[in-house]
Design a protein around this nucleic acid. Structure first.
Lengths: 100, 100
DNA sequence: CTAATCTACAACCAAATGGTTGTAGATCAA
DNA sequence: TTGATCTACAACCATTTGGTTGTAGATTAG
């Protein structure tokens, strides 16, 4: 979970996720889209990979980066839990007000 | 957005969010629940506050920590976008398979 | 075969992070 | 008033993070 949210806590990495969701990209194809070095983008992809947000698929000498929705789903589940707790809290307060 | 996911990328902070969603807690009340120093917990709360996940409410000499669902909602919106893109992607692939 | 391309990975650096201790200001209790 | 409690904040430290450059291994193109 730490790795998951950590991975999403960077604008470049969130942009990479959005890109690979909309088209096919190799690591160098992604790197071409940013001002930073190839190695830096490579590291960002590695962080996303450890967080289960993308997977790499070797194809020839290129490494294609594909989205992996597992990570997104796990993050959503936690936020859903929080919203559920929030709703329960609101309901409790409503009850107290109704009783008082 | 960076601050938001960064705030969620720590187990102690996620636990604090869960706690303040289920009951009333002052900063020192929270601190009592963890092995670390008061100042460390204080810093965690500050991180959550900057991320719009909690708000502090001064009450006497105590500072009550309350949940602030704004942050959770903003995080969810991004994940919803990702899932929407994912669904569109799956649909595109289905179409290609249907045409081929 | 040779040269260019794509990737992996190590070493290094500055800045941020997560923790500590210590000090000081408010507020409450006796 | 005095002492205890709650909080804020600074200074410090070790580790992680996000970036760099450089080197080397595969794979493709000419």
């Amino acid at each position: 979970m730490d790795r998951l949210f950590q991975a999403l806590a960077d604008a470049t990495r969130r942009d990479i996720v959005a890109r690979v969701l909309t088209g096919e990209f190799s690591v160098s194809g992604l790197a071409a889209g940013y001002e930073m070095s190839f190695a830096a983008v490579q590291k960002h992809v590695a962080v996303l990979e450890r967080a289960s947000l993308v997977v790499k698929e070797k194809h020839g000498r290129e490494q294609m980066v594909r989205p992996h929705p597992e990570g997104v789903r796990r993050a959503r589940r936690l936020l859903d839990e929080y919203e559920m707790l929030w709703r329960q809290r609101v309901d409790r307060i409503q009850d107290i007000l109704a009783d008082g």
